Amino acid sequence: MRKIRTIDDLLDSLASESQRRKQEMITLNFLLDSRRKHEVQVVCRSSVVLAYAHWEQFVHHAAQVYIGYVDSRRLSLDQLSLNFQVIGCQRLIQDVINYQSEFCYQSQLIEQLKLRSSETLTLEYDKMKQKSNLDAGSFQRICEILGLETNLWRDKYGFINDLYRTRCNIAHGELSSDSPQVEYAKEVLDFVIHGIDHFKTDIENAALNEDYLL
């Protein structure tokens, strides 16, 4: 992945990534309408797995390029919003968690926060990402890391969890009589297409509005 140095780099990366992923889902939607009856079930199952993969990877990509963009601004800790201060101090925070009784790690964290807050720290998404799987809880955590508002997403959390479970069942080879039907596959594709657009807009607005600043 190329370095994201400017707001145009960020917008271009989000646009390119979303367009490629949405195009494949539009094609799957067309196949659901055009395939012969005995092939529909296979296309339904494939649509759910691929749509989930596009959703998961776009969210992680968008988070990574946004954090990369903020990192390129080379801002000091005391200039950053609270969520980005947490990202910047993640290594020290993790040291405190891992070595709770070690005073030296606790003091290093306090020193960074109080005495060295004018320093620039490296911001990395990989240090914050606990897992790739994207159920509602993981999505909520990513939004919190990025400082994004989640109120408009909350009514989708039940569907996000159901999509995650259904994808896991299919990916693990489960076959059942109540496998995804055309209506559900289309609902998944529609959710992911619009979800990618929604999350992309959230990231763009956060960057353009400089929500990463204190």
Rank of each mutant, 00 (worst) to 15 (best):
Q64K: 09
V65D: 03
Y66S: 02
I67L: 08
I67R: 11
G68N: 10
Y69A: 01
V70R: 00
D71A: 10
R74I: 07
R74Q: 12
L75P: 01
L75G: 00
S76Q: 10
L77N: 02
L77F: 02
D78M: 09
D78Q: 07
Q79S: 14
L80T: 01
S81T: 00
L82F: 07
L82A: 05
L82H: 05
N83C: 06
F84I: 03
Q85Y: 02
C89A: 13
C89H: 03
C89K: 07
R91G: 06
I93G: 00
Q94Y: 03
Q94L: 06
Q94V: 01
D95K: 04
V96C: 00
I97A: 01
Y99L: 01
Y99R: 03
Y99S: 05
Q100Y: 00
E102V: 02
E102L: 06
E102F: 06
F103R: 11
Y105F: 09
Y105W: 07
Q106S: 07
Q108P: 01
I110N: 06
Q112M: 15
Q112H: 15
L113R: 14
L113H: 02
K114Y: 15
L115T: 09
S117Q: 13
S118E: 13
S118G: 14
E119S: 15
E119F: 11
T120C: 14
T120Y: 12
L121Y: 12
L121P: 12
Y125V: 14
D126M: 13
D126P: 15
D126S: 13
K127Y: 15
M128F: 08
M128V: 12
K129I: 15
K131I: 09
K131D: 13
K131G: 15
S132L: 10
S132P: 11
L134S: 06
F139Q: 13
F139L: 09
Q140E: 10
Q140P: 05
R141E: 13
I142Y: 08
E144M: 13
I145A: 07
L148K: 02
E149P: 15
T150R: 06
L152Y: 13
W153D: 04
W153E: 01
R154L: 14
R154F: 07
D155F: 01
K156M: 12
Y157H: 06
Y157F: 11
Y157V: 05
G158R: 07
F159S: 00
D162G: 08
L163I: 02
Y164A: 09
N169D: 10
I170E: 04
H172T: 08
H172F: 10
G173V: 08
L175D: 09
S176A: 08
S177T: 11
S177L: 11
D178R: 13
D178I: 14
D178G: 15
S179Q: 10
S179P: 09
P180G: 05
Q181M: 09
V182H: 08
E183P: 02
Y184T: 00
A185P: 05
K186H: 04
K186M: 02
K186R: 11
K186L: 03
K186I: 04
E187G: 07
L189T: 03
F191V: 00
V192F: 06
H194Q: 12
G195Q: 02
I196H: 02
I196E: 06
H198R: 13
F199G: 06
